[in-house]
Computed example of a mutant assay.
Amino acid sequence: MAKLKLRVATFNALSLSFIGHILTTFLERKPGISVFHETEGSRAILDLVASREFDFGIVQLSGDYPGIDVVPLPSVPAVCVLPLGHPLEKKRVIKIGDLQGQKLIALGRNSPLRIRVDSLLSEAGVTCDKNLETTLAASACDLVSRGVGIAILDPFTVSYYGNTEIVVRQFTPNLPYEIALVFPAKSARPVLATEFEMLVREMMKLEVDALSQSLLISSSCGSSPD
């Protein structure tokens, strides 16, 4: 008898660690099944799910997309990542105006978070020295640790990176890092996909709570609220 198979795709930030916890737990609960996991950018995942090449995906949410059903997951705020010893380290919260003249490591131009950061900078009339652009948040973390600049990133990647050479601060205005489960539209979901969805919801709530607490602890190390 052929094994039941689940095909799931997740975007880079979740593939570093979070999805590993979920897959391990799911396989422990459902012995005898087979899971194929793919890591792609959110746009590519939307295409794969819409064409039914995958049972579902987890993406960074960025508007409507034809051919899929969207199930939002809890969001967490993006954070500001600084190299150790940076002048802004003394602040508990980094404001958009604090970025004026700073060397800002930007994510790729197709990143929903990059697009929103650029929009905020434009609205606030803030000019940064975007001296470097990288498509991977993990690479941005590494570059920050080397003193190349600062970055506005998702807390999943920052938490996984865990380098002692970086400092994490809250960022305002709040930039919710919104993610969602996506399924092929107008099609019955496999039982395994429904069970996996329930596990994702369960573990995502725990992860978001842990990240929120970690951010509060990290930010409390700053000496100035302004």
Rank of each mutant, 00 (worst) to 15 (best):
Asp47Phe: 05
Ile152Glu: 02
Met204Leu: 11
Arg189Tyr: 11
Gly147Leu: 11
Gln213Thr: 06
Pro184His: 06
Glu53Ala: 14
Ala9Arg: 05
Pro87Phe: 13
Met198Cys: 10
Ser62Tyr: 09
Gly41Met: 05
Thr134Ile: 13
Asp118Ile: 04
Gly41Glu: 12
Gln102Glu: 15
Lys5Leu: 01
Leu14Ser: 05
Gln102Thr: 12
Arg146Thr: 04
Thr127Ile: 10
Asp64Pro: 03
Glu165Arg: 15
Arg52Trp: 08
Ile58Arg: 04
Phe11Glu: 10
Thr157Ser: 06
Leu206Phe: 03
Arg43Asn: 05
Ala137Cys: 02
Ser223Glu: 09
Phe196Leu: 14
Asp209Leu: 10
Val71Trp: 10
Gly97Asp: 13
Thr135Pro: 11
Phe26Asn: 05
Asp47Cys: 00
His21Gln: 13
Gly57Thr: 07
Leu211Gly: 06
Val8Asn: 04
Val191Ser: 04
Gly41Cys: 04
Asn110Tyr: 11
Tyr161Trp: 13
Thr157Tyr: 01
Ala78Arg: 05
Pro83Glu: 05
Glu165Trp: 01
Val144Glu: 01
Ile58Trp: 04
Asp55Gly: 03
Glu165Lys: 13
Arg201Pro: 09
Leu27Phe: 01
Pro184Cys: 11
Ser224Pro: 00
Val81Tyr: 00
Gly85Gln: 09
Asp69Asn: 12
Tyr177Val: 02
Lys30Thr: 06
Gly101Pro: 08
Leu143Ser: 04
Ile96Ala: 15
Ser145Phe: 02
Arg169Thr: 02
Ala106Tyr: 08
Lys91Asn: 08
Pro77Glu: 09
Arg52Ile: 03
Leu14Cys: 00
Pro31Ile: 00
Ala188Phe: 04
Arg169Ile: 06
Lys130His: 06
Ser214Leu: 08
Glu195Asp: 12
Glu195Tyr: 01
Arg114His: 12
Glu89Ser: 11
Val144Ile: 01
Gly67Arg: 12
Gly125Val: 08
Ser224Trp: 08
Leu27Ser: 04
Lys3Tyr: 04
Leu181Trp: 08
Asp55Thr: 06
Gly63Asn: 12
Pro66Cys: 08
Met198Arg: 14
Phe171Ile: 07
Pro190Phe: 00
Asp226Thr: 05
Pro112Gly: 06
Arg29Pro: 02
Gln102Val: 10
Leu82Lys: 08
Leu215Phe: 07
Ile96Tyr: 04
Pro155Ile: 04
Gln213Asn: 09
Leu216Ala: 14
Ser34Leu: 12
Leu46His: 05
Asn174Trp: 02
Thr164Glu: 14
Glu207Trp: 08
Pro74Leu: 12
Glu207Gln: 15
Ser15Glu: 05
Val144Pro: 03
Pro74Asn: 08
Met198Glu: 15
Asp98His: 15
Leu73Arg: 09
Thr135Asp: 13
Leu46Trp: 02
